[in-house]
Amino acid sequence: MDAVLPSGMTRRRVELRIVKPAFAWFARPTVTIDGVGHPAQWGTGTWAVPDEGTTALGVYLFNRAWRFGAASVTVTASDDVLEYRGGLLPVGPGRLRSV
């Protein structure tokens, strides 16, 4: 029998690898889960997603002047490791794919 978790807790986590582009122009990544933004860091981290169903997960980069490199994907139960790569230059979309 599974124990009941407190409100807001989840057992399902997705590993996200955020690769810094060569020309980041002082950009910082932000991860969005179902439209809610969360500040992130470069490198590998895990993110909690709802236990059931699909989840819209996205990443974009921003600096003090503009937002760029946006990419999103729908996470299903089979996705557990994702990798984000921003574009070579600070314009255009990034790539978010299952590894």
Rank of each mutant, 00 (worst) to 15 (best):
P50G: 11
R67E: 13
D79I: 14
D2K: 11
L89G: 09
D79K: 12
E52L: 12
L96W: 03
T76W: 03
G37D: 15
L61V: 04
V91D: 06
R64C: 02
R85W: 00
G37V: 04
V81W: 05
A3T: 11
M9R: 07
A77E: 15
P39I: 02
P29Q: 04
W47C: 02
W66A: 13
A27V: 04
A70N: 08
I18T: 01
G87F: 08
K20I: 07
L61D: 04
G58F: 06
V49W: 03
V19E: 15
T30H: 06
T44S: 15
R95Y: 03
S7K: 10
R95F: 05
T55M: 04
P50E: 09
R28C: 03
D34V: 07
P39Y: 04
A3F: 12
R95W: 09
T46Y: 07
T32D: 10
V59W: 01
V75P: 08
V14I: 15
P39N: 09
R67I: 07
G69N: 06
W47G: 04
P50W: 05
A22N: 08
S7T: 12
G86C: 04
G45D: 08
V91T: 12
Q41P: 00
R64Q: 12
A70V: 01
D79F: 06
A71W: 02
G43E: 10
M1G: 14
P6F: 11
W42Y: 12
L89M: 14
F68M: 06
G58P: 07
L16A: 10
P93H: 14
I33T: 10
G45P: 00
K20T: 07
T74F: 01
W25M: 15
V14P: 06
I18F: 02
F26L: 13
R67W: 04
D51L: 07
G86S: 14
A65F: 15
T32P: 03
P39D: 14
T74C: 03
E52I: 06
R12P: 02
F23V: 12
R11V: 09
D34Y: 11
F26E: 13
R11E: 10
E15Q: 14
S98Y: 01
G69I: 00
G94K: 06
V36P: 01
V75I: 13
T30W: 03
R64E: 09
I33H: 02
V14E: 08
V73P: 00
W66K: 13
G69H: 03
G94C: 10
F23Y: 10
G53M: 11
V99C: 06
G37K: 11
P21M: 12
R11A: 12
V59R: 02
V75A: 07
R28D: 10
E15V: 02
V31W: 00
V31D: 01
